[in-house]
Amino acid sequence: MFKKEFKTIDEQIQILKKRGLTINDIESASRYLLTNNYYNIINGYSKPFLEEKEKYINGASFDEVSRLYFFDKEIKQTLFNAILDAEHHLKSLFAHRFAEIHKGDPEAYLNVSAYNDDYSQDIAWTITNFARIIRSNRRYDNNSIKYYIDNYGAVPIWVIVDYLNFGDLLTLIKISPISLQNKLAEDLISFIKANNPDFHKKFSPRVMISFIKNIHETRNICAHNNRLIYSSCRADGKYFKYLHSQYNIKPEDPRNTVYTTFISLQCFISRTEYAKLNNTIRKRMKTLDNHLFSIETNSILDLLGFPNDWYNLPPIQQG
């Protein structure tokens, strides 16, 4: 039997006050809870302000909890936009290298022999997915798939790749032959060098794919508006000495945090794109710092894996 009873907004407010949360503007807080969902705001973002399960620390306020919710939302939007840039670059690079290998066969992606046969189940799923995308889009006007079928009789990889989601793209890269993965990893070095001019090492497919996996997981958190603070990826990204050592991350340290995913993005986006991401996150953290009084901002940075006082570092020059 379901034991959680419905609570009116007034009852929700009283519960919060009873637990020691300061609410300076009852009317504003009531309207906020009505339009933003008590469960999402309070259950999702109260934890850093709790002394124990149902007791807030001295001085904790509703304004701080709602501000933390807004901060988390803004960081997700910022990260998501940067991940869209990374996805765009990966699709373009992959399509070019795949087409280069399979000259004369525009639909080689429908052929089992185009992939690494160690991944038979993923290959079958990928080919079925490609066929489904073509089948569902060829029936409708005003899309590139129908245009290419009508005018050229086939849909090349550089057209259909834009119909894949990030998870599809990750699988496609994972099941590709190591020769193609190497070409893709080598192409990405241009982004690494743009963000780190003295870089002269190799970027291996193993590291590349592990980074993409964690970027994909973080992307899903952002896209589905789940809570970013307290989140972590299922596995550590592979240790990339050149990159991680710059940020004092040792091989034994966790590499599944928002922070490690954030720094890995400089392997997939331009210097201008990364500078914008970096500087925007800093601004959001500084704004949060101006609105937190009962807890330290560093406690929130820690939940995201960022070093203490990270937002006080100088910005990256853009352009």
Rank of each mutant, 00 (worst) to 15 (best):
V155R: 00
R97I: 08
R138N: 03
I42D: 07
L301Q: 05
I249F: 05
P197I: 05
L172A: 01
A60I: 09
T257F: 01
D187T: 04
A99C: 09
Y56W: 12
N279D: 15
L93A: 09
K238M: 10
F240Y: 10
I269A: 13
D253Q: 02
Y140H: 15
C233L: 05
Y163A: 04
F268N: 02
I316W: 00
K146Y: 04
V65K: 00
E64W: 11
A95G: 05
I9R: 03
A223N: 08
Y259I: 02
N165M: 04
P251Y: 01
K202S: 15
Y311L: 05
S232F: 10
Q266Y: 01
S294T: 11
M285K: 00
K213I: 12
N129A: 09
F293E: 07
S264A: 11
A223V: 05
Y38C: 06
S92V: 04
Y147S: 03
L110Q: 07
K238G: 06
Q14V: 10
Y311W: 06
D302S: 13
V159W: 01
C222D: 02
P315D: 12
D117Q: 13
L277I: 11
N220G: 01
N37A: 11
K91I: 02
E252G: 05
S190P: 00
D72R: 14
W158N: 12
I263N: 02
A60E: 07
V65W: 06
A82S: 15
K73V: 05
Y242A: 14
L16H: 05
I134E: 01
S28Y: 02
F62R: 06
I127M: 03
K4G: 11
Q14C: 09
I13Q: 01
N279A: 12
T280P: 08
P254A: 08
H216L: 11
S179W: 10
D10A: 09
I75T: 12
D122Q: 15
K283F: 14
N58S: 14
K103Y: 01
T272H: 13
V65L: 10
Y148V: 00
D150K: 07
L84H: 11
K174W: 12
I160S: 07
K4V: 15
R227P: 00
Y39I: 14
Y259Q: 00
A194S: 15
R67D: 04
T171H: 07
N290C: 02
F70Q: 12
Q317I: 03
D168W: 06
Y239L: 12
P314T: 00
N129T: 08
R206N: 15
N143D: 08
S210A: 13
N81M: 10
T280F: 09
L164D: 05
E217C: 03
Q181D: 06
I300H: 06
I173T: 08
K276T: 13
P156C: 04
L68I: 12
S113T: 11
T171M: 09
D309I: 03
F240E: 07
L169G: 04
E296A: 14
K183M: 04
N290P: 00
R282E: 14
P254E: 11
I145Q: 04
D72P: 13
Y56N: 02
D253A: 08
G59R: 13
E51K: 10
T78E: 10
N40W: 06
E273T: 15
Y152K: 06
Q12N: 10
